[in-house]
Amino acid sequence: MTTTLEAQQNPAAWTKGLSFSRIVRSEWVKLRSLPSSYILVASSVAAMVGVGMLGAGGMILSQRDGQPVATQAIQSMPMAGLSFGQLLLAALAVLLVSSEFGTGMIRPTLTAAPMRTGVLAAKALVAAGIGALTGATAAFLSYLLIQPILAQEDLDYALENPRMYGLLLATGVYLALAAVIAVSIGVLLRNSAGAIVTVIGLLFVLPTALSMIPGGVAAEILRYLPSEAGSQFMAAEIADGELTRLEGALVMTAWAVGFALTAALVFRRRDV
């Protein structure tokens, strides 16, 4: 048996050395080489578009019943499915890390790239990127698909309104930040099921539960949860006393940064 172990070419021709941008690219290779990524992105988009279309259908019925629909409700329709869509995308972001802990893949990953903060940042960046892309795509797709439905009662509207662009893009920003939170929770908990349940609890169950509790304290806490603060910067209208779009964006960014920093601190110290 003859084996040539040495690389066939001059090293300079086939290897360049470790760098952050290459770690990001590596994480992208990992994401796009798993069938589950496509399934989760597609179902996330489908959930958002589907809910938007159902909502639009509901508006048509209500309009026909002689109950006029408020403009701001129509304008928020493309974002209506976000609370479901975000869960599927967050699951994808969690799996980006928790599956590595679950399978042991984290060891080859950290052997190839020992700088842990860099690896975490790369994962967060890739998750945020796919989140932004998914969110914006789903929002624009929803917008496009509900116009023919709304047109039946002349409720359709044009994208020329510059604020609409902002709102649709904000959906992407929201999902990007939610993905960073999900990646961080994946790092902190390591266990896929536990981390997904925690993310769903934070983004979906907790806000729902708090909104059912009467009293000012619950409402006050609710305002500052990531999902609620985040939905403020996608709101078509800001009611008095609510966080403004900028405040909402800042609060949610603070959540994402806080989670990411905590995850980085823990990840740097932990044995894998």
Binding site: A13, W14, T15, K16, G17, L18, S19, R22, I23, R25, S26, E27, V29, K30, S33, P108, T109, A112, A113
Partner: peptide, 9 residues
């Protein structure tokens, strides 16, 4: 995925 971290072809 491993190779990409180092720009290995």
């Amino acid at each position: 995925a491993m190779a990409t971290t180092h720009g290995i072809s």
